[in-house]
Each structure stands twice: as C-alpha cells, then as structure tokens.
C-alpha cells in the first residue's frame, strides 16, 4: 500500500495545534497508513531536505506568517503539495500573534530589544563555516491564505479532537472543517432571548445568566461550537478562539454588528469606557483578517 506523505510546518505558532495531532491515539494507530516526510518540529528536517522531496500529499501549516523565511517555506510547500491545510486559528485568521499588527515593526523591536541599536544583526559564526543570516521581519502578520492558496481550513486554538478525527484519514473534501453551530448551541447558559442593556467586565460579579444578557462581552454567538463551550462551563466568557464562521469576513466588525442589533439602547459609550482596549478584545484571534487593519497600514 502506498503511504500518504505528510508534512508539518509551524510558522509563527506555538506548535500546539501540531501537538494536538500527537495527542490523538487514532493518529498513532493509523500510523502505518502514512509517513511524515518533512516536519522540522519532530524530525531532523532541513530546508535542503524539503528541496529534495518532489511530492507531498498533505501539508499542515500552523501559525501565521511574519518572517521572510515563513513565506519562502510555505511557498515551497505549496508547490510540492497536493493539499495544503491551514491548521489552527493562527494559520486561518492570524490568531493571537496577529495582535502585533496593532504596532509597527519599530515599536515591536524596540519593545523587545530595548532600542533599535541592539537588534541582532547578521554576523559570521566563529569558525567561518556557516554564514548566519536572520530572516527579514515583515511589516505585518499575515494569514497563510494571504501568501499561498489554501485548500482546507481547520480553525481552533488548538483544533478539537472531533475536527482532527474528521481529517485523520487525510482524504477529506470539505473546505472548512469546523462545527456549523455556534458556542451558544452547546452553552449551558442557554436563554430564549438575548438583550444587552448595560456593559460589565468579566471580573465583575457574575450572576450565572447568559454573559451577554449581563452585559459581559461573550463571543459565543459568533464562534463555532467545537469547543463544547469549555470556557463558559468554567464561568469564563467566550473569547472567540475558533475565529469566525466561514462566511464572515471580519470577526470584530461582526461583534459590533451583533451588539448593535441586540443592544436595547445605545451602549457604545459605556462599552468604550469599560473596555479601553476594545479592539484588542474583539480582534484577539482575528486581527490579520480584519478590514480595518489593512486600511490603516496602507497610509
């Protein structure tokens, strides 16, 4: 039997999504069906090894794209792969690292390294054998889809077991591997009608009713419910780690859209007073996919 050739690559990600594969017994049980041909995370895989491979069946890319290196590698992977899967919210929507798009490159570097001068520069290694070059730090964090064509999207932070089980035979067809119904459908705090009449922060007193009714921002209605409402079950409002539903272009704008339709009165001022960093809350996982981000950057 011909084995399915798999590749795994982690760009600006935490490797969590990839590891969730290895948390799955089914992955190991069926391991005779596939071979991992390139995965720098688990095997000794170098760029030159990748260049030698001529065909990959399925490539999983995790994390968003910031460095020139990420860009180069995903482009090579795309060329060689039959199917490219964006694995996890970072790859699909930009994820938490995407919040860096609120800052310019200079701001980020000076925050991390103190001042511009101390930014690491390319230099020769002592023995002169290799030349170490640092990849270029691009101006913005991008989704995988913005760099290469992506065939399948598997959002989640990390993706849930049921999602991975759907793709474990590596022969799936659906473009989006994600639950159709929202977190609200699996939420224990179910209500008949949601109306928002005031605004509260999550650390204020929680009376056990639906968070939105209490005025606490909860993104349950906007987020696919693969998670089985794990956060709400431990009394934490949904932060939308699965990103938006496939049709939605901009998660944060959709939050505003939703709030404006379920708010009983004008809560805009209260909202911006209680959440001074509202944009960072509503775009916590999806900033690179937002419309606003692009416009600001152009200027």
């Amino acid at each position: 039997m011909k084995k399915i050739k798999l590749a795994f690559y982690s760009a600006s990600g935490c490797s969590g999504c990839m590891l969730s594969f290895f948390d799955l017994e089914e992955f190991f049980i069926s391991s005779e069906r596939f071979s991992i041909v390139w995965a720098p995370m688990f095997t000794n895989s170098k760029l030159e090894d990748l260049e030698k491979i001529d065909k990959i069946d399925v490539t999983f890319i995790e994390g968003s794209i910031r460095l020139s290196e990420h860009e180069e590698i995903v482009k090579i992977l795309r060329e060689k792969s039959e199917k490219v899967v964006a694995l996890g919210t970072c790859a699909v929507f930009g994820g938490v690292p995407g919040l860096s798009n609120f800052y310019s490159t200079e701001e980020i570097l000076s925050e991390v390294f103190g001042s511009d001068k101390e930014v690491p520069k390319p230099r020769l290694l002592l023995d002169g054998k290799y030349e170490l070059t640092l990849p270029e730090f691009r101006d913005e964090m991008r989704r995988v889809e913005e760099v290469i064509d992506v065939d399948h999207f598997v959002p989640g932070c990390p993706p849930s077991e049921d999602q991975l089980l759907k793709i474990i035979d590596f022969n799936f067809e659906e473009k989006w591997i994600v639950e159709k119904s929202s977190v609200c459908n699996v939420c224990p705090r179910k209500v008949e009608e949601i109306k928002v009449s005031s605004v509260k922060r999550a650390f204020e007193r929680d009376d056990g009713r639906c968070f939105l009714i209490q005025g606490i921002l909860c993104f349950g209605p906007l987020t696919p419910g693969n998670c089985e409402a794990t956060c709400v079950k431990v009394n934490v409002p949904c932060r939308g780690c699965y990103g938006a539903f496939p049709n939605v272009r901009d998660f944060g704008a959709k939050v505003v859209d939703l709030l404006s339709s379920i708010a009983e009165k004008n809560i805009a001022e209260e909202l911006s007073r209680k959440y001074p960093n509202l944009a960072r809350v509503i775009y916590a996982y999806t900033l690179p996919s937002a419309i606003i981000n692009k416009r600001v950057r152009k200027r």
Binding site: K180, S182, G225, F245, P246, S261
Partner: peptide, 14 residues
C-alpha cells in the same frame, strides 16, 4: 443561506 446558518437564534431575537 441554510448551509451557513448556525441556528443560534439571534435573528429571531432581533
């Protein structure tokens, strides 16, 4: 769009 509907009920609500 029945394919995309998550059945959350916000529309009925508003």
């Amino acid at each position: 769009n029945e394919e995309a509907c998550s059945g959350c009920g916000i529309c009925e609500n508003v």
